[in-house]
């Protein structure tokens, strides 16, 4: 999961550093993730995993690290499968 997100961060996150260098809990904003790129990354994740981020997850915490993004996915995915 983290690896799939890492790949999307590389493709859409416009980070000044390669995603391979990021630890799962490392602060993505401090590493150079901008709010513009956050939106692009979120859209790419929605498209790739066929999910939708609910409004309540559209905040800084949800995209603060690779593991935070994975946690959002893990919260959305069971709800999607159950529906």
């Amino acid at each position: 999961m983290i690896e799939a997100i890492r790949k999307l961060v590389d493709e859409h996150g416009r980070m000044p550093v390669p995603a391979a260098s990021l630890k799962p809990d490392q602060d993505l904003y401090a590493a150079g993730l901008t709010s513009f790129a956050t939106v692009q990354l979120m859209l790419a994740i929605e498209e790739h995993f066929d999910i939708e981020f609910p409004e309540r997850m559209l905040n800084r915490r949800s995209f603060a690290s690779l593991s935070a993004i994975a946690a959002c996915f893990n919260e959305i995915e069971p709800a999607r499968l159950a529906s």
Partner: peptide
Amino acid sequence: DSDELTSVG
């Protein structure tokens, strides 16, 4: 509410 403060909305 820090989540609200940092939210897109």
